[in-house]
């Protein structure tokens, strides 16, 4: 039967080995694959300013980006492709709550420059290689709501 010291060895050994593998995989991902998949060379000052705006207004508190955030408002990774620049700019600069189908967004009333930064950020996000996310709907052609 397992003794207490063997159990401790299992815990410490398992933890250390798992953590080392995790660190190795993380190192490889971050040094090599992530810059390539995210087109790190395209992180312009506008994109970075856009990310600041994204965070300082807690957009993730309603929306998701890369599928992460809250589930009250649409996923925005591919929003530029889906809605186009004019629509997105209108939603961002609106002085009254943007409320498609009655669900309200905070009326941020961003300036044109701020909206441009956020659009740059969302455009950059839309071009990141996300291993196939978001998946294309299988039966889109049967749907009439686009």
């Amino acid at each position: 039967m397992l003794s207490k010291s063997q159990a401790r060895f299992f815990f410490l050994g398992g933890t250390i080995v798992s953590f080392l593998i995790f660190l190795g995989l993380s190192w490889k991902s971050l040094s090599d694959d992530v810059p390539r998949q995210t087109n790190a060379q395209n992180l312009t000052p506008e994109v970075v300013r856009g990310k600041h705006l994204w965070e300082s207004n807690n957009c993730m508190g309603c929306h998701t980006i890369f599928g992460e955030g809250a589930y009250y408002a649409p996923e925005l990774t591919k929003v530029m492709e889906r809605r186009g620049e004019a629509y997105v700019k209108l939603a961002l600069t609106s002085k009254t709550p943007w409320s498609p189908r009655g669900r309200k967004m905070v009326a941020y009333g961003f300036s044109d420059a701020e909206a441009a930064d956020l659009i740059a950020f969302l455009t950059w996000c839309g071009n990141v290689d996300l291993n196939g996310f978001p998946a294309k709907p299988k039966y889109q052609q049967l749907s009439t709501n686009q």
Partner: peptide, 17 residues
């Protein structure tokens, strides 16, 4: 620890995750 990988499926990280 390695289960952290389930957060790295679709955020711009490689397929190994």
């Amino acid at each position: 620890i390695l289960g952290t990988g389930h957060h790295y499926y679709y955020i711009g990280t490689p397929r190994i995750w």
